[in-house]
């Protein structure tokens, strides 16, 4: 956090990829997200930070309509991807999710082989013309997930037989295999050791060249290391949103300051 280099990190003035305006989310009577407005830039890593239960995951799930699967969940407001309202009735949420990929908080590999885990998305979207193509996609995705070396000899072993950290990287590989435009990552490194974390962070940095990445993290260092923009959530509201360097060195809101210095959390 005291690493001053983060100040020098350039933030591209990229175009807005996802724009959320006046977003509210209710779980039944619980008001989980309160009037949140955020512009997420293209080719940028945006970090969501905040204490547990403040609604980071909930807001993230709004961005690819995963909340649709929760019966009691109701989303209001305006969320646009490339200027198109993703909650428009004409939008097919399945198509949206192919464009906005997701890595979940808990690793959830399919109870199938490692190969099939990664190949599933490309298969259903018809991204591979033949077996060789698919093999290539799978290898590339596993390399980007920083897990290729560990699993290349047992691609047909069950994905559920991997360790927790390996499973999470497999899930990351699975998510990037479908070539999404936006990648939502909900605490992707919470189960990883420092080396794997570093690999995933490198991956995130690399993904930034082509995609927009949104990452939820409890590690302030990680947010500072990988992100260009940071949003601080507290009790369902967006308290502060800005360039990462500014948030960590010169927060405007005193709640942000308390959180990043460890006084609330």
């Amino acid at each position: 956090m005291n690493d001053m280099r983060i100040l020098e990190r350039d933030v591209d003035a990229n175009k807005v990829k996802i724009s959320a305006q006046n977003c509210d989310v209710y779980y039944g009577d619980t008001h989980a997200i309160k009037d949140v407005s955020v512009d997420i830039s293209d080719r940028t890593v945006t970090a969501f930070i905040g204490p547990s239960g403040c609604g980071k995951s909930t807001f993230l799930r709004c961005l690819n309509r995963m909340n649709d699967t929760i019966d009691v969940c109701r989303v209001t407001g305006d969320i646009r991807l490339d200027d198109q309202n993703i909650y428009d009735s004409r939008v097919d949420p399945v198509q949206l999710r192919a464009k906005v990929g997701m890595v979940f908080q808990k690793p959830n590999p399919f109870p199938k082989s490692i190969y099939d885990n990664v190949a599933y998305g490309p298969r259903i979207h018809g991204l591979a013309r033949n077996k060789a193509d698919l093999d290539e996609i799978v290898e590339k995705a596993l390399r980007r997930g920083a897990i290729w070396d560990e699993v290349k000899d047992r691609l047909h072993a069950p994905g559920t037989g991997l360790s927790g950290g390996q499973q999470q990287r497999l899930c990351i590989a699975r998510a990037v295999a479908t070539e999404p435009e936006v990648l939502l990552m909900d605490e992707p490194c919470s189960a990883l050791d420092p080396i794997a974390t570093l690999q995933v962070e490198e991956l995130i940095d690399e993904l930034r060249r082509d995609y927009s990445v949104v990452i939820v993290t409890h590690s302030m260092q990680q947010a500072a290391r990988v992100s260009q923009k940071t949003a601080f959530f507290h009790l369902g509201s967006l308290v502060e949103y800005g360039e990462t360097g500014q948030i960590f060195t010169n927060p405007k809101d005193e709640r942000t300051e308390s959180y990043i210095t460890g006084r609330i959390g």
């Binding site: 995963m66 399945v94 198509q95 999710r97 192919a98 979940f104 399919f110 259903i124 899930c171 998510a175």
Partner: peptide
């Protein structure tokens, strides 16, 4: 498992 499948666009 359902989330995982929906998440990759199934």
């Amino acid at each position: 498992i359902r989330d995982a499948a929906l998440g990759v666009g199934a």
